[in-house]
Design a protein around this nucleic acid. Structure first.
Lengths: 118, 118
DNA sequence: TCAAAATTTCAATGATCATTGAATTTAGGG
DNA sequence: CCCTAAATTCAATGATCATTGAAATTTTGA
């Protein structure tokens, strides 16, 4: 299993972060993670947003941009927001992004009550 | 002269704003406008960032996303950030974006001393 | 009315994007 | 050891992107 690669904090670029959030599906994923109770979520919790294959694609974009972290455990993968890292690199940005997504009803949402499970 | 169209505040979408900022050249333009003394700048002040034709393209993207406002006067055009509108729609977002661009050295900059003229 | 300046338009280019679906890999549990 | 669940890989698709350069447009000032 090839290791999952993440950019160093210093290599996270503003334009790349915005590009990662430019897609409604990815913005929805980030919002769902921010809204979730748990620190990390299983990737397969996001099936509402697309097929497994498509989710792999979007999770890669988010990870490569430095927005998320992915941890492999057994046959599953767990995603989380890189809160500390992003706050260190661009203070306040992540919170601002989340607040923005919250205010925009056009960002897709997981049906009320459905959980982002661990 | 066909009028310049701007989206209503309510129609500004988060993903569209992020898409507008996803390009290094456009992020540089926004940063330069934020850094400028004046409220608005003549479009031709940004020639450092590309050819006239290319600038038209990028200014259109920014305007269509709701990030900037364009005013035509004579043979010139004047761009400005839609500060109030963006603050109303997504409070804090624009400031956060500007602070983020400032912190990222990879965002292109106009050579020190060169002005964004009116 | 002419000429120059500022900007747009247009077509063409190659690159990257989001999406699909089928085939494959990976790892754990019985 | 096999079965199954979870996820990736891969190729193919059409759409949109950023960029170029040449031609057209618009408007003002001489």
């Amino acid at each position: 299993m090839k290791p999952v690669l993440h950019p160093d904090i210093a290599d996270i670029e503003a334009a790349a972060v915005f590009a990662a959030l430019a897609d409604p599906t990815r913005l929805a994923i980030v919002l769902a993670m921010a809204e979730a109770e748990e620190f990390e979520s299983r990737c397969s919790s996001f099936t509402d947003f697309g097929s497994p294959s498509l989710l792999t694609y979007h999770f890669n974009k988010l990870r490569e941009a430095g927005v998320t972290r992915v941890r492999a455990a057994g046959t599953s993968r767990y995603v989380s927001l890189r809160r500390e890292d992003l706050d260190a690199r661009f203070p306040g940005l992540l919170d601002s992004i989340i607040a923005t997504a919250r205010r925009d009803p056009s960002v897709p949402r997981i049906p009320e009550g459905r959980l982002i499970a661990l």
